[in-house]
Amino acid sequence: MIRTVARTFACFALLALSTTTLMAQQEADFMRSMGKMYVVVAVIAILFIGMVLYLYSLDRKLTKLENQISHHDEAETTH
């Protein structure tokens, strides 16, 4: 749990930093074009990435649980 939370935070920090600094330097005009509409697009993309990261971490937790269950079953059949 703690590792996934930390990882999520790190991912967001990296994402926010890298995209914003990159865009600020090279594509400021693009991001500011059309009344800064692309800022809204970027914000929605961040939400999408956030939901995907949540699904990814849930997937990992489920995999762990599945492994535990299969170990559990093995232990029961051998005893």
Binding site: F12, A16, T20, M23, M31, K36, V39, I46
Partner: peptide, 14 residues
């Protein structure tokens, strides 16, 4: 975390 990231994105251009 999503609020903070979207806020940072918004703040960059405002």
């Amino acid at each position: 975390a999503m609020g903070l990231a979207t806020g940072a994105m918004w703040a960059t251009y405002t």
